[in-house]
């Protein structure tokens, strides 16, 4: 299993219970976050904060769209999935 080519859409996670599926792809203008799932209306702000925190820590400055399909992931899981998806997007880890 090789590394993904950097800059192509990349995914991490699943749609299973307590998990989320994170997809990262290039965006024309800015960092854009899209979240869908049952708990989004209540937790959108904290989820966005966590996503931004993880990407900032990884030094991300690209214009990317982060799409999250949530199925009850706690922040620890969300953070791990965003990190894995971003490192795959950058071609740093396998996919």
């Amino acid at each position: 299993m090789g590394l993904m080519e950097a800059g192509r859409a990349a995914q991490a996670g699943t749609v299973e219970s307590m998990d989320c599926l994170v997809t990262i792809s290039p965006d024309a203008e800015r960092r854009r976050i899209e979240i869908s799932g049952s708990g989004v209306s209540r937790f959108r702000a904290t989820m966005e904060q966590k996503i931004n925190q993880v990407l900032d820590k990884l030094g991300s400055s690209e214009n990317i769209e982060i799409s999250v399909q949530d199925n009850g992931a706690v922040d620890v899981v969300l953070g791990a999935r965003v990190e894995a998806a971003y490192l795959r997007f950058k071609g740093v880890i396998d996919a």
Binding site: G13, V76, A80, R81, A84, L87, I93
Partner: peptide
Amino acid sequence: SSARILVREV
């Protein structure tokens, strides 16, 4: 790699 990140965070 994805599992390693998840386990570390947990």
